[in-house]
């Protein structure tokens, strides 16, 4: 019996790869620094979704922990960069 899921997972992986390429183009093109931070944040989210999809494909729970870590560090990095653009400092006295 052939199942549909492998094809759906392959489609999703291709879609995520394309999405990461789009975010990468925006990261390189700019023009403003905020655009680059936004693109980097999108890249983080897309890689987290890709890790989850790989977890479905290989049936390994380890990918869940990878996704959780990417979410944690992605948020900290994006928030720090956005805060820096807003104030010129990350931690204010």
């Amino acid at each position: 019996m052939t199942t549909l899921l492998p094809f759906a997972v392959s489609f999703a992986l291709i879609a995520f790869a394309l999405a990461m390429i789009f975010a990468g183009i925006r990261l390189l093109r700019g023009p403003a620094a905020e655009d680059r931070v936004l693109a980097l944040d999108t890249l983080y989210v897309n890689s987290m979704i890709t890790a989850l999809t790989l977890g479905i494909q290989f049936g390994d729970r380890l990918y869940f922990d990878i996704a959780l870590l990417i979410a944690l560090f992605g948020f900290v990095g994006s928030a720090a960069m956005a805060k820096f653009l807003l104030r010129g400092e990350v931690i204010e006295p």
Binding site: F11, A12, A15, L18, A19, M20, L38, N46, I49
Partner: peptide, 15 residues
Amino acid sequence: MITGGALTLIGSLGL
């Protein structure tokens, strides 16, 4: 999966 893939693709295309 297909919904998620399509929405992610569209969202990043929005960039």
